[in-house]
Computed example of a mutant assay.
Amino acid sequence: MTSLPRSWARVERLDAARTVDALYARTGVRFALEGPCPGGQVGAAYVRRPDGRRSVLKWRPHSRVADMRAGPLAVTEALRLAGYPAPATELISQVGHAVVMVQELLPGTTLDHLDQRSLDQALGLNQLQADRLAGHPGIPTVEFHLREDGPGYCLHDPLRRYNRRTAAFERWIAAVGADHPARMAGRDAVHMDFQPGNILATGGSITGVIDWDGAARGDRRFDLVTLRFGIHSTEADPGVTHRLDAVLDSFPEDILRPAWAHMSLRMVDWAIRHFTPADVEHWLDLAEQRMS
């Protein structure tokens, strides 16, 4: 089944060799390209410095350095000060329309299977995100896109046109949007794509959370809704799914409903435009569980 789509930019493939050359021309720092990062990250590759140290080259199209510094990078720096295992940004540069970053390579591999122990750790990390941006009112807040399209994702028209079932679901999403603010309130750090493919672990312990390019300010509980969608596309113990559902059941409706509607729109729209009818049904089956 489909994995969660990138929520912050249109998907465009990294030309890593050309980007390394452009970064050298801009900064005078030469990196040796090792190859693409696993897991379908079209905008990430492993690179090595002249001293042998390895890092991750990140490429974010149609972006500005100033916006990255004021948004996602400010979020991760605030979290790192609290001991959160987010990667440090070692170098950042504007290369044409794209922002190119070299980030710390954290230990571990992506978490393919969420068990009870890793869920405990994920919930602990989510707690650490609470109130972390209280001193950063300028960081943009999360936008739900329930009333109008997002920038290349969370599009409404594909649901309206696909079939009767998706059209009815889009009407529910629009109704949720009409009942809630367009942006998320809160002072927490929000990852926006907190799912197993962005969680690193080794020996059963989480060692890092990566891919903060869409990070924003809002309510940390949004990330647990994202995690619920994330384990729908991977292998998870049934007990883990039931336990996470119980956590979501405890959320106030004004938190859970718009977050669930956003993730439902995000996944169903993406499946309609990029994957198969079976994928559309896969995501609708989950999305409709909290349709009321």
Score class of each variant (00 low, 15 high):
87 P>C: 02
54 R>G: 05
274 H>A: 05
66 A>N: 01
248 L>F: 09
57 L>P: 07
66 A>E: 15
213 D>G: 08
229 F>P: 02
226 T>R: 06
200 L>Q: 10
277 P>M: 12
259 A>R: 09
78 A>D: 05
165 R>I: 11
245 D>E: 15
90 E>V: 09
143 E>I: 12
146 L>A: 06
215 A>D: 06
125 L>D: 03
216 A>Y: 00
138 G>R: 07
14 L>M: 02
8 W>M: 11
86 A>P: 04
182 A>K: 10
61 P>S: 05
76 T>P: 03
275 F>W: 08
100 V>A: 07
137 P>W: 06
236 A>H: 00
268 V>G: 00
180 H>I: 01
272 I>L: 04
48 R>K: 13
150 G>T: 09
64 R>K: 13
183 R>A: 09
233 S>W: 07
54 R>W: 07
195 Q>I: 03
165 R>W: 13
170 E>C: 08
89 T>Y: 08
38 P>M: 04
216 A>I: 01
242 H>R: 15
143 E>L: 12
91 L>M: 11
103 Q>W: 00
192 M>N: 11
259 A>V: 08
146 L>Y: 03
141 T>F: 02
235 E>N: 06
194 F>R: 00
255 I>K: 04
69 R>D: 11
137 P>I: 06
65 V>G: 01
258 P>T: 06
218 G>M: 02
61 P>A: 05
29 V>I: 13
175 A>Y: 00
132 R>S: 13
67 D>C: 00
64 R>E: 14
87 P>M: 03
29 V>T: 13
261 A>L: 13
111 L>S: 00
224 L>I: 06
98 A>I: 02
194 F>E: 04
115 D>V: 04
58 K>C: 12
220 R>K: 07
267 M>N: 15
242 H>D: 15
188 D>H: 10
192 M>V: 15
17 A>H: 01
42 V>N: 10
175 A>L: 05
47 V>P: 05
255 I>G: 01
134 A>S: 13
158 P>R: 13
28 G>P: 01
133 L>H: 11
199 I>C: 08
177 G>L: 08
